[in-house]
């Protein structure tokens, strides 16, 4: 189904070392250490206000942070520039905004001025990427009229358009029904297997996490517990965060 861009190698990794974020006096994240392998689905869980979204923004360079984020090619150990494909939680587009899917993709992924003309070459390239997610026929639709699932697939297409090393998804399944969510996780599965991608996903859907994640990271200001789903879900840290409240 998917067009393979790169063969998976299992040799790249992303290292987060002692990452910390503070807004003024308020410490949101501290001493976060993570090791992310390519071709794996890493899910960050934690209660509201645990710093999950801040962590994503720190990875993207949207907030200042201490510590380092390194992307390593393990074969020769050299450090390359980390390319991140990001799927945002929501877009800032109100009803009736005259922005088509082509416009959205052109403005984020190209230098061809979208207001001046529509490049046939670019359109073909966008369509090809959209087709990976069975969204090619949406290219001339207004973005604000797409359903939650359609928008998700467009955003995913944009995220992998310039062949990133890391896919970062911020609570992407809100506003999508169960079938849509299954489809979404199937796509993620294919992506990580076929595109040499590390995936970091922020999720609230613990059942789905249990079933699909390769690695679960329990976050609350720092990494409380990490490991495979079984290890994390049966840990006392998990119990303290999620079960005591109920």
């Amino acid at each position: 189904m998917l067009r393979k861009i790169i063969n998976p190698c299992g040799l790249h990794c992303i290292k987060v070392k002692d990452l910390g974020v503070a807004f003024g006096d308020q410490v949101v994240l501290e001493h976060v250490n993570l090791h992310i392998h390519c071709g794996s689905l890493n899910v960050i869980i934690g209660k509201n206000g645990a710093g999950k979204s801040t962590f994503v923004r720190a990875l993207l360079g949207d907030v200042n942070h201490t510590g380092t984020i390194e992307f390593k090619d393990r074969e020769n150990g050299k450090i390359q520039k980390l390319k991140i494909g990001y799927v945002p939680q929501k877009l800032n587009l109100e009803k009736n905004t005259p922005v088509s899917v082509y416009d959205l993709m052109a403005s984020c992924c190209s230098k061809t001025p979208a207001f001046l003309y529509k490049s046939k070459k670019l359109e073909a390239k966008f369509k090809e990427t959209l087709d990976v997610f069975e969204a090619g026929d949406l290219i001339d639709k207004q973005v604000c009229n797409l359903s939650g699932g359609q928008l998700q697939r467009v955003l995913l297409a944009m995220a992998i358009y310039d062949e990133p090393n890391l896919l970062l998804l911020d609570e992407p399944v809100s506003g999508i029904d169960q079938i849509g969510m299954d489809l979404f996780y199937d796509i993620i599965d294919d992506l990580k297997k076929n595109y040499d991608l590390s995936v970091i996903l922020i999720s609230h859907d613990l059942d789905m996490v249990k079933e699909r994640a390769d690695k679960v990271i329990l976050l609350d200001k720092t990494v409380l517990k990490e490991g495979n789903p079984k290890e994390v879900f049966e840990s006392k840290e998990f119990e303290e965060v999620f079960l005591k409240v109920r």
Partner: peptide, 10 residues
């Protein structure tokens, strides 16, 4: 305008 964070990621 559509998403600051998305724009920054690009």
């Amino acid at each position: 305008g559509i998403s600051r964070t998305l724009a920054k990621s690009k």
